[in-house]
Design a protein around this nucleic acid. Structure first.
Lengths: 207, 207
DNA sequence: CTATGTGAATTTATTCACAGCA
DNA sequence: TGCTGTGAATAAATTCACATAG
């Protein structure tokens, strides 16, 4: 299957496997079967095997997958094998929480820069990062930063995205509760926390 | 199509449409075509029409959809037509940001209770809500709260989820970076912000 | 003449079942 | 024997094309 196009859904699941494997690896586990990984991450074992098969054989029949090796492979596929700097735009409540969030490191991310528009925040140091003026967003290009997290109010999201694209940013994680239009070459992933909550009641039986 | 099973993907998109329509409605727009809505929310027009068709005809041929009517319909489908109380567990950085987040109201949510395990936080008032001891999670049942947001550290997530299920909670929005196992009758939606960021580099051409 | 609504065609993803290797 | 890897079968979702209603 090595020569097929990789399903988007497979890419979406890879970080889930990675998360589980990193944990499993930390626990000192050397290898893990698709069945055990399945129980651990909440995905079917055949789905896991199929997903890995798109990239070729990662496992050993009769044994399972070598955790460390598999972690390396997935990181390579996801291009997480080198530490990546990311910028944050908008240091409000949510933005500050993002800055303080410890979970980015395990994937090789380093939130290295933060921007805000408010004079109250510019120049302040939050989590060891000095907040800069959004007007200097353009400097991202020469700083070699191509990933950004947007946590600005809805009304500023589109303009922010456009400035980021102009600054050479290629990937945006958008926390603003709206669709942002960007050129096709730029990838946007939107997280709308209220929207996700809004999906829950549907699945809950009357009551 | 009224008698078909509704695709999960359709349900996932309904809140996207709702978000766009609420905005459009606020702007005073009375009706909107699937094409205009498409441009606004970033989903194809035929996808939008197909999605709505599962529930029967919402629109008027030649005109489009009445925004206010459509908002009502989607809210009804998603069971968002009555204000729903939700509980927050874990008032750390992320939890506090969630408490302060203004976006829940538009979907009819009211984060009415907050819990934490830290004596430093218990009793403190954050965003007009007094933080309670997690040991009183069980009171949720008699308070009629069946939705919860989990923003505790990874190691506490599974235990927290179990306590919530015991307290009668039927839907969980999980911000902890791990899979949590719950009975089938309970719906969990997990948001792992680092994991979503981890998906971006894959889509970015080498550089 | 415009824009919805929907069967049919196509594409994409999941699930199965088992051959094949350690 | 145990567990991977993968074609084939099934299921699900998207896209198309157009009949149909205002």
């Amino acid at each position: 299957m090595r020569y097929h196009r990789i399903p988007d859904e497979t890419i979406r699941r890879l970080p889930i496997y990675l998360r589980g494997l990193l944990f499993s690896s930390e626990q000192g586990r050397e290898s893990i079967s698709s069945r055990d990984l399945a129980d651990f991450v909440g995905v079917n074992s055949w789905q896991i095997r199929k997903d890995f098969s798109y990239f070729g054989g990662f496992g050993t029949r009769g044994i399972g997958y070598n955790t460390e090796k598999l972690v390396k492979q997935i990181k390579r596929i996801l291009k997480l094998d080198v530490v990546k700097k990311a910028a944050l735009v908008g240091v409000g409540n949510l933005g500050s929480a993002v800055l303080a969030y410890p979970g980015f490191r395990m994937y090789g991310f380093n939130i290295a820069v933060a921007f805000d528009i408010s004079p109250m925040k510019i120049g302040r140091k939050i989590n060891n990062i000095v907040v800069e003026n959004v007007s200097s967003l353009w400097t991202l290009k020469k700083r070699g930063i191509s990933l950004a997290i947007v946590a600005v109010p809805q009304h500023a999201a589109q303009k922010t995205a456009e400035a980021l694209v102009k600054a050479g940013v290629k990937g945006i994680l958008n926390f603003s509760p709206c669709y942002i239009a960007v050129p096709k070459k730029v990838k946007v992933i939107t997280i709308d926390i209220a929207m996700d909550l809004a999906r829950l009641p549907y699945y809950i039986p009357a009551g």
